[in-house]
């Protein structure tokens, strides 16, 4: 519950500009529109998280990405505070896919090994059970008591193969990998 999520230290290394970074973002699915952001700030002023977080500012993150502040963007904990409500995307006068660009940045952070623990947890649950949560036995018994039909089960052979093909293995707890 930190008010100010940890930011990477501002040393010369973190502040180094990497002009190729924006192209890396733009080639991902829905990342192309990063280039047309003209910094009006409609995203930040529409953002529900920005009202309560002292550090999360979508406009700032987009500008840092355009400039090529690779490490400062990808190592920032605030990147993970987007609720994916898509209000920014709806209100952007430049039709920047703001929420999607931010998602591309989070996906890139994961590729660099920056993975908040919750996502490892959720991905591992899906890999192991098909569901995103581990549903306790007690719940399944209660379903029967309530007269609800049994829960459908995933064919896990299909699910785990697809997760691996899509590059999801790095998200899994090592114990889960079959």
């Amino acid at each position: 519950m930190a008010d100010k999520p940890e930011m990477p230290k501002m040393n010369a290394e973190t502040l180094k500009l990497d002009p190729s970074f924006k192209y890396e973002v733009m080639k991902e699915h829905d990342g192309e529109t990063l280039k047309v952001c003209f910094q009006c700030g409609s995203c930040t002023s529409s953002c529900p998280t920005a009202r309560f977080s002292t550090s999360y500012r979508p406009r700032t993150i987009l500008r840092m990405a355009q400039l090529g502040l690779r490490r400062k963007v990808l190592e920032s904990q605030t990147l993970w505070l987007c609720t994916a409500c898509f209000t920014c995307t709806d209100r952007c006068p430049q039709n920047v896919e703001v929420a999607n660009v931010l998602r591309v940045l989070r996906n890139l952070a994961v590729k660099k090994g920056q993975i908040p623990g919750i996502f490892t947890e959720l991905a591992s649950n899906i890999y192991a059970t098909g569901y995103v949560y581990k549903i306790p036995e007690m719940r399944l018994r209660k379903r029967a008591e309530l007269g609800l039909p049994p829960l459908p089960k995933a064919n896990l052979d299909g699910v785990d193969k697809l997760i691996e093909l899509a590059g999801g293995r790095k998200l899994l707890k090592s114990a889960e990998v079959r």
């Binding site: 991902e28 998602r103 591309v104 994961v110 959720l122 991905a123 997760i163 899509a166 590059g167 998200l171």
Partner: peptide, 12 residues
Amino acid sequence: VDPASHEMMMVL
């Protein structure tokens, strides 16, 4: 899992 992997979200 979309925030962590769009590709994984899509296959699921």
